[in-house]
Design a protein around this nucleic acid. Structure first.
Length: 379
RNA sequence: GGGAGUGUGCCCGAGUGGCUAAAGGGGACGGGCUGUAAACCCGUUGGCUAUGCCUACCAUGGUUCGAAUCCAUGCGCUCCCA
Protein backbone atom coordinates (compact mmCIF):
# COMPACT_ATOMS: atom_id res chain seq x y z
CA UNK A 1 0.00 0.00 0.00
CA UNK A 2 1.18 3.47 -0.78
CA UNK A 3 0.83 6.52 1.37
CA UNK A 4 -2.65 8.10 1.52
CA UNK A 5 -4.41 5.17 -0.06
CA UNK A 6 -7.90 4.80 1.24
CA UNK A 7 -8.65 1.13 1.03
CA UNK A 8 -12.29 0.27 1.19
CA UNK A 9 -12.82 -2.96 3.08
CA UNK A 10 -16.58 -3.03 2.72
CA UNK A 11 -19.45 -1.01 1.31
CA UNK A 12 -22.82 -1.50 2.93
CA UNK A 13 -25.35 -2.59 0.35
CA UNK A 14 -28.39 -0.81 1.77
CA UNK A 15 -26.84 2.39 3.14
CA UNK A 16 -23.89 4.54 2.11
CA UNK A 17 -21.81 3.31 5.03
CA UNK A 18 -18.32 2.10 4.33
CA UNK A 19 -15.44 0.57 6.24
CA UNK A 20 -12.02 1.67 5.16
CA UNK A 21 -8.35 2.08 6.03
CA UNK A 22 -6.50 5.31 5.41
CA UNK A 23 -2.73 5.04 5.21
CA UNK A 24 -0.71 7.87 6.74
CA UNK A 25 2.95 8.37 7.53
CA UNK A 26 2.31 7.44 11.15
CA UNK A 27 0.08 4.48 10.60
CA UNK A 28 -3.25 3.28 9.36
CA UNK A 29 -6.59 4.73 10.43
CA UNK A 30 -9.49 2.33 10.36
CA UNK A 31 -12.76 3.98 9.51
CA UNK A 32 -15.35 4.95 10.43
CA UNK A 33 -13.52 6.60 13.31
CA UNK A 34 -13.86 9.40 15.82
CA UNK A 35 -10.82 11.64 16.33
CA UNK A 36 -10.30 13.13 19.81
CA UNK A 37 -9.59 16.86 19.77
CA UNK A 38 -6.30 18.06 21.22
CA UNK A 39 -6.35 21.70 20.19
CA UNK A 40 -3.15 22.79 21.93
CA UNK A 41 -1.25 19.59 21.25
CA UNK A 42 -2.94 17.89 24.16
CA UNK A 43 -6.24 16.14 24.55
CA UNK A 44 -7.14 17.92 27.77
CA UNK A 45 -6.46 15.68 30.74
CA UNK A 46 -5.43 12.61 28.74
CA UNK A 47 -1.88 11.36 28.25
CA UNK A 48 -0.86 9.76 24.96
CA UNK A 49 -0.55 6.44 26.80
CA UNK A 50 -4.16 6.64 27.82
CA UNK A 51 -5.22 7.68 24.33
CA UNK A 52 -3.66 4.48 23.05
CA UNK A 53 -5.45 2.44 25.72
CA UNK A 54 -8.74 4.02 24.71
CA UNK A 55 -8.18 2.96 21.11
CA UNK A 56 -7.60 6.41 19.66
CA UNK A 57 -6.04 6.10 16.24
CA UNK A 58 -5.66 9.74 15.32
CA UNK A 59 -6.02 13.01 17.17
CA UNK A 60 -6.53 16.63 16.16
CA UNK A 61 -4.53 19.71 16.88
CA UNK A 62 -5.19 23.29 15.87
CA UNK A 63 -2.92 25.50 13.80
CA UNK A 64 -4.46 28.74 15.09
CA UNK A 65 -3.73 28.01 18.72
CA UNK A 66 -0.34 26.43 18.12
CA UNK A 67 0.72 29.24 15.80
CA UNK A 68 0.00 31.74 18.56
CA UNK A 69 1.49 29.57 21.26
CA UNK A 70 4.07 28.21 21.36
CA UNK A 71 4.62 29.07 17.68
CA UNK A 72 5.18 26.80 14.70
CA UNK A 73 8.96 27.27 14.81
CA UNK A 74 9.24 25.88 18.31
CA UNK A 75 7.23 22.82 17.36
CA UNK A 76 9.32 22.44 14.20
CA UNK A 77 12.47 22.69 16.33
CA UNK A 78 11.10 19.93 18.56
CA UNK A 79 10.92 17.77 15.45
CA UNK A 80 7.22 18.31 14.80
CA UNK A 81 4.03 17.71 16.73
CA UNK A 82 4.52 13.97 17.15
CA UNK A 83 7.77 14.24 19.06
CA UNK A 84 6.75 17.49 20.73
CA UNK A 85 3.73 15.91 22.38
CA UNK A 86 4.87 12.32 22.56
CA UNK A 87 2.22 10.85 20.30
CA UNK A 88 3.60 8.58 17.60
CA UNK A 89 0.35 7.95 15.78
CA UNK A 90 -1.51 9.97 13.17
CA UNK A 91 -2.32 13.61 13.81
CA UNK A 92 -4.56 15.96 11.88
CA UNK A 93 -4.25 19.72 12.15
CA UNK A 94 -7.12 22.04 11.46
CA UNK A 95 -6.06 25.18 9.64
CA UNK A 96 -7.47 27.59 12.20
CA UNK A 97 -9.88 29.16 9.77
CA UNK A 98 -12.73 28.14 12.01
CA UNK A 99 -11.19 30.04 14.94
CA UNK A 100 -10.54 33.17 12.94
CA UNK A 101 -14.16 33.37 11.84
CA UNK A 102 -15.91 31.96 14.88
CA UNK A 103 -13.98 34.10 17.33
CA UNK A 104 -15.12 37.14 15.36
CA UNK A 105 -11.70 38.64 15.44
CA UNK A 106 -11.20 38.94 11.72
CA UNK A 107 -10.04 42.43 10.87
CA UNK A 108 -10.18 42.18 7.13
CA UNK A 109 -10.84 39.59 4.51
CA UNK A 110 -9.66 39.98 0.95
CA UNK A 111 -8.94 37.84 -2.04
CA UNK A 112 -5.35 37.39 -0.99
CA UNK A 113 -5.83 36.50 2.65
CA UNK A 114 -7.03 37.78 5.96
CA UNK A 115 -5.96 39.79 8.94
CA UNK A 116 -6.96 38.93 12.46
CA UNK A 117 -6.26 39.87 16.02
CA UNK A 118 -4.73 37.38 18.40
CA UNK A 119 -7.08 36.18 21.06
CA UNK A 120 -4.15 36.04 23.43
CA UNK A 121 -2.58 39.47 23.28
CA UNK A 122 -4.49 41.49 20.69
CA UNK A 123 -1.55 41.50 18.29
CA UNK A 124 -2.28 41.72 14.56
CA UNK A 125 -1.56 38.85 12.21
CA UNK A 126 -1.92 38.27 8.50
CA UNK A 127 -2.53 34.86 7.00
CA UNK A 128 -2.72 33.68 3.43
CA UNK A 129 -3.43 30.15 2.26
CA UNK A 130 0.31 29.91 1.53
CA UNK A 131 1.40 31.05 4.98
CA UNK A 132 -1.12 28.71 6.56
CA UNK A 133 0.34 25.78 4.64
CA UNK A 134 3.77 26.87 5.81
CA UNK A 135 2.57 26.79 9.42
CA UNK A 136 0.90 23.42 9.10
CA UNK A 137 3.92 21.94 7.34
CA UNK A 138 6.09 23.08 10.20
CA UNK A 139 3.69 21.52 12.70
CA UNK A 140 4.09 18.32 10.73
CA UNK A 141 0.75 16.55 11.15
CA UNK A 142 -0.13 13.60 8.93
CA UNK A 143 -3.24 15.28 7.60
CA UNK A 144 -3.64 19.02 7.20
CA UNK A 145 -6.77 20.94 6.34
CA UNK A 146 -6.98 23.72 3.80
CA UNK A 147 -7.66 27.25 5.07
CA UNK A 148 -11.38 27.83 4.60
CA UNK A 149 -14.23 30.07 5.64
CA UNK A 150 -16.90 28.52 7.82
CA UNK A 151 -20.30 30.25 7.88
CA UNK A 152 -22.69 29.93 10.79
CA UNK A 153 -26.42 29.25 10.76
CA UNK A 154 -28.64 30.86 9.77
CA UNK A 155 -26.87 32.83 7.05
CA UNK A 156 -27.70 34.72 3.89
CA UNK A 157 -27.34 32.69 0.73
CA UNK A 158 -25.00 35.27 -0.76
CA UNK A 159 -22.74 35.08 2.23
CA UNK A 160 -22.62 31.30 1.98
CA UNK A 161 -21.90 31.52 -1.73
CA UNK A 162 -19.04 33.94 -1.11
CA UNK A 163 -17.59 31.52 1.43
CA UNK A 164 -17.85 28.68 -1.09
CA UNK A 165 -15.99 30.69 -3.73
CA UNK A 166 -13.33 31.96 -1.34
CA UNK A 167 -12.79 28.56 0.23
CA UNK A 168 -12.44 26.93 -3.18
CA UNK A 169 -9.90 29.51 -4.27
CA UNK A 170 -7.98 29.02 -1.05
CA UNK A 171 -8.22 25.27 -1.61
CA UNK A 172 -6.39 25.67 -4.92
CA UNK A 173 -3.73 27.88 -3.39
CA UNK A 174 -3.25 25.54 -0.45
CA UNK A 175 -2.89 22.63 -2.85
CA UNK A 176 -0.31 24.55 -4.89
CA UNK A 177 1.61 25.74 -1.85
CA UNK A 178 1.68 22.41 -0.09
CA UNK A 179 4.89 20.49 -0.70
CA UNK A 180 5.39 17.95 2.08
CA UNK A 181 5.02 14.53 0.56
CA UNK A 182 4.47 12.84 3.92
CA UNK A 183 1.41 14.99 4.63
CA UNK A 184 -2.09 14.57 3.24
CA UNK A 185 -4.04 17.72 2.39
CA UNK A 186 -7.83 17.72 2.63
CA UNK A 187 -10.04 20.19 0.80
CA UNK A 188 -13.17 21.39 2.59
CA UNK A 189 -16.70 21.47 1.26
CA UNK A 190 -18.79 24.46 2.32
CA UNK A 191 -22.23 25.61 1.18
CA UNK A 192 -24.35 25.81 4.30
CA UNK A 193 -27.63 23.95 4.17
CA UNK A 194 -28.18 24.59 0.47
CA UNK A 195 -27.63 21.52 -1.64
CA UNK A 196 -26.84 23.36 -4.87
CA UNK A 197 -24.13 25.38 -3.15
CA UNK A 198 -22.73 22.23 -1.57
CA UNK A 199 -22.52 20.50 -4.95
CA UNK A 200 -21.04 23.63 -6.49
CA UNK A 201 -18.44 23.66 -3.72
CA UNK A 202 -17.46 20.12 -4.62
CA UNK A 203 -17.20 20.99 -8.32
CA UNK A 204 -14.99 23.94 -7.49
CA UNK A 205 -12.75 21.75 -5.34
CA UNK A 206 -12.31 19.39 -8.27
CA UNK A 207 -11.45 22.37 -10.49
CA UNK A 208 -8.91 23.44 -7.91
CA UNK A 209 -7.37 19.98 -8.06
CA UNK A 210 -7.13 20.17 -11.84
CA UNK A 211 -5.62 23.64 -11.80
CA UNK A 212 -3.11 22.60 -9.18
CA UNK A 213 -2.38 19.40 -11.03
CA UNK A 214 -2.76 17.44 -7.83
CA UNK A 215 -5.74 16.01 -6.02
CA UNK A 216 -6.71 16.25 -2.40
CA UNK A 217 -6.11 13.11 -0.39
CA UNK A 218 -9.47 13.49 1.31
CA UNK A 219 -12.29 15.92 1.96
CA UNK A 220 -13.59 17.71 4.96
CA UNK A 221 -17.24 18.62 5.11
CA UNK A 222 -17.43 21.84 7.04
CA UNK A 223 -20.16 24.31 7.83
CA UNK A 224 -22.47 21.83 9.52
CA UNK A 225 -23.19 21.59 13.19
CA UNK A 226 -23.07 25.36 13.42
CA UNK A 227 -26.37 25.84 15.21
CA UNK A 228 -28.89 24.25 12.83
CA UNK A 229 -31.35 21.59 14.02
CA UNK A 230 -30.00 18.06 13.53
CA UNK A 231 -32.57 17.21 10.91
CA UNK A 232 -31.50 20.12 8.73
CA UNK A 233 -28.03 18.65 8.28
CA UNK A 234 -29.37 15.28 7.24
CA UNK A 235 -31.49 16.88 4.53
CA UNK A 236 -28.30 17.41 2.53
CA UNK A 237 -25.49 15.40 4.14
CA UNK A 238 -26.15 12.15 2.29
CA UNK A 239 -26.16 13.79 -1.10
CA UNK A 240 -23.05 15.80 -0.28
CA UNK A 241 -21.15 12.73 0.88
CA UNK A 242 -22.09 10.64 -2.13
CA UNK A 243 -21.04 13.45 -4.46
CA UNK A 244 -17.49 13.10 -3.14
CA UNK A 245 -15.03 10.59 -4.59
CA UNK A 246 -15.72 7.06 -3.41
CA UNK A 247 -12.09 6.24 -2.76
CA UNK A 248 -11.17 9.19 -0.59
CA UNK A 249 -11.92 9.68 3.09
CA UNK A 250 -14.75 12.00 4.06
CA UNK A 251 -14.45 13.91 7.29
CA UNK A 252 -17.50 15.56 8.85
CA UNK A 253 -15.96 18.37 10.84
CA UNK A 254 -17.06 19.21 14.36
CA UNK A 255 -19.64 16.51 14.91
CA UNK A 256 -19.55 14.31 17.98
CA UNK A 257 -23.09 13.60 19.03
CA UNK A 258 -23.39 9.76 19.15
CA UNK A 259 -26.68 9.57 17.27
CA UNK A 260 -25.45 11.98 14.64
CA UNK A 261 -22.32 9.86 14.20
CA UNK A 262 -24.33 6.69 13.67
CA UNK A 263 -26.59 8.37 11.12
CA UNK A 264 -23.73 10.16 9.37
CA UNK A 265 -21.83 6.90 8.92
CA UNK A 266 -24.95 5.62 7.20
CA UNK A 267 -24.71 8.68 4.96
CA UNK A 268 -21.19 7.78 3.94
CA UNK A 269 -18.98 9.68 6.40
CA UNK A 270 -15.67 8.16 7.55
CA UNK A 271 -14.16 10.55 10.07
CA UNK A 272 -15.41 12.82 12.83
CA UNK A 273 -13.96 15.11 15.42
CA UNK A 274 -15.61 17.03 18.21
CA UNK A 275 -14.87 18.60 21.56
CA UNK A 276 -18.18 17.32 22.88
CA UNK A 277 -16.96 14.15 24.61
CA UNK A 278 -14.04 15.84 26.34
CA UNK A 279 -15.64 19.17 27.11
CA UNK A 280 -18.86 17.73 28.50
CA UNK A 281 -16.72 15.26 30.45
CA UNK A 282 -14.86 18.08 32.19
CA UNK A 283 -18.23 19.63 32.96
CA UNK A 284 -19.52 16.40 34.52
CA UNK A 285 -21.41 14.61 31.76
CA UNK A 286 -20.97 10.97 30.75
CA UNK A 287 -22.12 9.29 27.57
CA UNK A 288 -23.79 5.96 28.23
CA UNK A 289 -26.10 3.39 26.76
CA UNK A 290 -28.77 5.02 28.92
CA UNK A 291 -28.14 8.39 27.31
CA UNK A 292 -26.28 11.34 28.76
CA UNK A 293 -25.70 11.23 32.49
CA UNK A 294 -25.15 14.42 34.42
CA UNK A 295 -22.97 13.16 37.25
CA UNK A 296 -23.74 16.25 39.32
CA UNK A 297 -27.28 15.00 39.79
CA UNK A 298 -28.07 13.95 43.35
CA UNK A 299 -29.53 10.66 42.15
CA UNK A 300 -26.01 9.31 41.64
CA UNK A 301 -24.74 9.98 45.14
CA UNK A 302 -25.43 6.41 46.29
CA UNK A 303 -25.15 4.76 42.88
CA UNK A 304 -22.24 2.34 43.13
CA UNK A 305 -22.58 0.99 39.60
CA UNK A 306 -20.26 1.84 36.68
CA UNK A 307 -20.92 4.89 34.49
CA UNK A 308 -22.28 2.54 31.86
CA UNK A 309 -22.89 -1.10 32.82
CA UNK A 310 -22.57 -2.02 29.14
CA UNK A 311 -19.16 -0.34 28.79
CA UNK A 312 -15.82 -2.17 28.76
CA UNK A 313 -13.61 0.88 29.22
CA UNK A 314 -10.96 1.03 31.97
CA UNK A 315 -12.97 3.63 33.90
CA UNK A 316 -16.08 1.48 33.99
CA UNK A 317 -14.03 -1.48 35.24
CA UNK A 318 -12.70 0.41 38.23
CA UNK A 319 -14.91 3.29 39.34
CA UNK A 320 -18.53 3.93 40.31
CA UNK A 321 -20.96 6.70 39.48
CA UNK A 322 -21.07 7.70 43.14
CA UNK A 323 -17.28 8.10 43.27
CA UNK A 324 -17.08 10.03 40.03
CA UNK A 325 -19.99 12.22 41.15
CA UNK A 326 -18.04 12.92 44.32
CA UNK A 327 -14.98 13.93 42.28
CA UNK A 328 -17.04 16.12 39.94
CA UNK A 329 -18.95 17.85 42.73
CA UNK A 330 -15.74 18.50 44.63
CA UNK A 331 -14.13 19.78 41.44
CA UNK A 332 -11.34 17.24 41.74
CA UNK A 333 -9.43 17.09 38.46
CA UNK A 334 -9.63 13.31 38.34
CA UNK A 335 -13.38 13.55 37.75
CA UNK A 336 -12.95 15.28 34.42
CA UNK A 337 -10.07 13.01 33.50
CA UNK A 338 -11.99 9.80 34.13
CA UNK A 339 -15.09 11.09 32.36
CA UNK A 340 -12.96 12.20 29.40
CA UNK A 341 -11.46 8.73 29.15
CA UNK A 342 -14.86 7.11 29.30
CA UNK A 343 -16.51 9.46 26.78
CA UNK A 344 -13.67 9.11 24.29
CA UNK A 345 -13.78 5.36 24.61
CA UNK A 346 -17.53 5.50 24.15
CA UNK A 347 -17.30 7.24 20.76
CA UNK A 348 -14.27 5.30 19.58
CA UNK A 349 -15.95 2.06 20.53
CA UNK A 350 -19.18 3.19 18.87
CA UNK A 351 -17.27 3.71 15.64
CA UNK A 352 -15.51 0.37 15.99
CA UNK A 353 -18.91 -1.28 16.33
CA UNK A 354 -20.15 0.65 13.32
CA UNK A 355 -17.16 -0.62 11.34
CA UNK A 356 -17.87 -4.20 12.39
CA UNK A 357 -21.46 -3.78 11.30
CA UNK A 358 -20.39 -2.53 7.88
CA UNK A 359 -17.92 -5.37 7.49
CA UNK A 360 -20.65 -7.85 8.35
CA UNK A 361 -23.18 -6.22 6.02
CA UNK A 362 -25.66 -5.26 8.71
CA UNK A 363 -25.37 -1.52 9.02
CA UNK A 364 -29.09 -0.96 8.51
CA UNK A 365 -29.79 -3.19 11.49
CA UNK A 366 -27.04 -1.54 13.51
CA UNK A 367 -28.44 1.92 12.85
CA UNK A 368 -32.02 0.82 13.54
CA UNK A 369 -30.96 -0.81 16.78
CA UNK A 370 -29.23 2.37 17.82
CA UNK A 371 -32.18 4.58 16.94
CA UNK A 372 -34.45 2.36 19.02
CA UNK A 373 -32.11 2.34 22.01
CA UNK A 374 -32.73 4.45 25.07
CA UNK A 375 -29.50 6.29 24.38
CA UNK A 376 -30.61 7.62 21.01
CA UNK A 377 -33.31 9.88 22.45
CA UNK A 378 -30.78 11.74 24.50
CA UNK A 379 -28.38 12.75 21.78
C1' G B 1 -20.25 40.27 90.19
C1' G B 2 -19.13 44.70 86.67
C1' G B 3 -18.39 46.55 81.59
C1' A B 4 -18.51 46.30 76.17
C1' G B 5 -20.30 43.95 71.93
C1' U B 6 -23.42 40.74 69.29
C1' G B 7 -27.85 37.56 67.58
C1' U B 8 -30.37 38.15 59.75
C1' G B 9 -32.87 32.90 55.29
C1' C B 10 -29.23 25.69 55.06
C1' C B 11 -24.16 28.35 56.35
C1' C B 12 -21.23 32.95 56.23
C1' G B 13 -22.57 37.85 55.71
C1' A B 14 -24.63 43.12 54.02
C1' G B 15 -28.53 46.05 55.52
C1' U B 16 -29.53 50.36 60.88
C1' G B 17 -37.39 53.35 60.00
C1' G B 18 -40.74 52.81 54.10
C1' C B 19 -37.67 51.57 47.36
C1' U B 20 -36.60 44.48 51.93
C1' A B 21 -39.05 38.08 50.94
C1' A B 22 -34.22 40.97 52.57
C1' A B 23 -27.37 42.67 48.64
C1' G B 24 -23.13 39.43 48.12
C1' G B 25 -20.62 34.80 48.88
C1' G B 26 -20.83 29.55 49.97
C1' G B 27 -23.69 25.25 49.87
C1' A B 28 -27.71 22.62 47.68
C1' C B 29 -30.63 21.61 43.31
C1' G B 30 -31.17 21.81 38.01
C1' G B 31 -29.89 23.12 32.79
C1' G B 32 -26.40 23.98 28.78
C1' C B 33 -21.91 22.51 26.11
C1' U B 34 -20.85 20.10 18.54
C1' G B 35 -13.45 21.72 13.09
C1' U B 36 -12.00 23.81 22.38
C1' A B 37 -10.34 31.68 24.51
C1' A B 38 -14.65 26.48 28.49
C1' A B 39 -11.88 21.68 34.94
C1' C B 40 -16.73 26.66 32.16
C1' C B 41 -21.38 29.36 31.65
C1' C B 42 -26.60 30.01 33.07
C1' G B 43 -30.91 29.38 36.23
C1' U B 44 -33.55 28.18 40.95
C1' U B 45 -33.06 28.32 46.24
C1' G B 46 -39.64 30.70 52.76
C1' G B 47 -44.88 29.00 51.73
C1' C B 48 -49.46 29.25 49.09
C1' U B 49 -55.84 28.42 46.79
C1' A B 50 -50.18 32.77 43.40
C1' U B 51 -50.26 39.87 38.75
C1' G B 52 -52.18 38.69 45.23
C1' C B 53 -51.82 36.75 50.15
C1' C B 54 -49.41 34.50 54.42
C1' U B 55 -45.12 33.62 57.44
C1' A B 56 -40.18 35.64 58.26
C1' C B 57 -34.32 38.98 60.32
C1' C B 58 -33.28 35.27 68.84
C1' A B 59 -38.11 35.86 72.18
C1' U B 60 -41.88 38.89 74.24
C1' G B 61 -43.84 43.62 74.80
C1' G B 62 -43.71 48.75 73.14
C1' U B 63 -42.94 53.48 69.91
C1' U B 64 -44.68 54.59 64.81
C1' C B 65 -49.23 55.47 59.49
C1' G B 66 -45.09 51.92 58.77
C1' A B 67 -39.75 48.17 62.22
C1' A B 68 -34.80 43.30 60.43
C1' U B 69 -33.77 48.44 61.43
C1' C B 70 -35.86 52.66 67.39
C1' C B 71 -37.05 51.48 72.95
C1' A B 72 -37.72 47.91 77.24
C1' U B 73 -37.17 43.20 79.31
C1' G B 74 -35.56 38.23 78.84
C1' C B 75 -32.48 34.47 76.63
C1' G B 76 -27.96 32.91 73.83
C1' C B 77 -23.01 33.85 72.25
C1' U B 78 -18.13 36.77 72.28
C1' C B 79 -14.48 39.78 74.58
C1' C B 80 -12.52 42.76 78.78
C1' C B 81 -12.23 43.79 84.19
C1' A B 82 -12.76 41.46 89.00
Amino acid sequence: MTLFDFEIDALDSRTSARAGRFHTAHGVIQTPMFMPVGTRATVKGITPDHLEDLGAQIILANAYHLYLRPGADIIAAAGGLHTFMGWDHPILTDSGGFQIFSLANTLSLDADGLEFVSIIDGSRHRWTPESNMDIQQKLGADIVMQLDQCIGYPAEREQIEQAVLLSADWARRCRQAHTRSDQALFGIVQGGMEIDLRLRSIELLHEAEETAGCGFEGFGIGGYSVGEPHEVMFETLGEVASALPLRKPRYLMGVGNPTTLVRAVGSGIDLFDCVLPTRTARMGTAFSSEGRLNLRNARFSLDFTPLDPACTCPVCQNYTRAYIRHLVVQKEMLGGILLSQHNLYYLINLMNCAREAVLEGRYTEFEAEWMNSSAAHDY
